[in-house]
């Protein structure tokens, strides 16, 4: 465990906590993409099924449980608790366009043709595009709640930090994980526009508004 990965995981955790706090505080899930949350739930469930047969560390197990349960809790908040606040009419990105290519990529690029390896690869590719419905929604509405913006920012930081983590691990351990590395580059690229607007607007205390 190096500092990059640890900070990345903390940032990932923070993003989820921010989202839950926002929904609970405002008693509303307005501005949050249900589709993105659903995709993340799918990412975690398909990636972390190894929790039952592959032990890494207490930290690893704890985080896996946290990510799966907290994301399902967000789905519950959006679908049941604060359902009326969520407008499906602005959450229109077709998730098939993310799920289908991820499935194809998982079948082509993986660490071996076992169910576990294919699901793992699928989850990695899926994660790289899972933020798209949220970014799409942001683009449609043109502005967002400060907390939603911080949520996306924390999520982007998490992905960005995994890149130096892998470079560090390559140098110190000779460890190479090309699938996750490539998928993460794609994912970070998706955030670049968002980061730019975040930097030019939010950092200067302005409201998050798309130009």
């Amino acid at each position: 465990m190096n500092i990059f990965r640890f900070l990345a995981d903390l940032s990932h955790m923070a993003s989820i906590v921010i989202l839950i706090l926002q929904i609970r505080k405002t008693k509303s899930a307005a501005g949050v993409s249900y589709k993105t949350q659903f995709l993340y739930a799918l990412v975690f469930v398909t990636r972390y099924i190894d929790i039952f047969f592959h032990y890494v560390s207490l930290y690893n197990t704890f985080m896996k449980i946290f990510f799966v349960t907290s994301t399902i809790y967000i789905l519950y908040l959006m679908r049941v608790q604060y359902k009326p606040s969520h407008d499906p009419n602005i959450d229109t990105f077709r998730i098939e366009y993310i799920i289908a290519p991820s499935a194809v990529l998982a079948l082509i690029i993986n660490h071996g043709y076992t169910l576990y390896e294919i699901l793992w690869s699928f989850s990695v590719w899926l994660e790289s595009g899972a933020i798209l419905p949220q970014l799409f929604m942001l683009q449609r509405t043109g502005e967002a709640e400060t907390l939603t913006v911080h949520y996306i920012f924390a999520l982007g930081i998490y992905r960005l930090l995994y890149i130096p983590n892998w470079i560090y691990r390559y140098v110190t351990e000779g460890r190479v994980e090309p699938i996750a590395f490539l998928a993460s580059l794609i994912q970070t690229a998706l955030y670049s526009d968002f980061f730019y607007i975040y930097y030019t607007k939010v950092m200067q205390g302005k409201k998050f508004e798309l130009p």
Binding site: D9, H12, H54, V56, F67, E117, N165, R175, V176
Partner: peptide, 10 residues
């Protein structure tokens, strides 16, 4: 490299 080591991250 063992497969197990490839999935020690989140």
């Amino acid at each position: 490299q063992k497969i197990e080591d490839e999935h020690d991250e989140l």
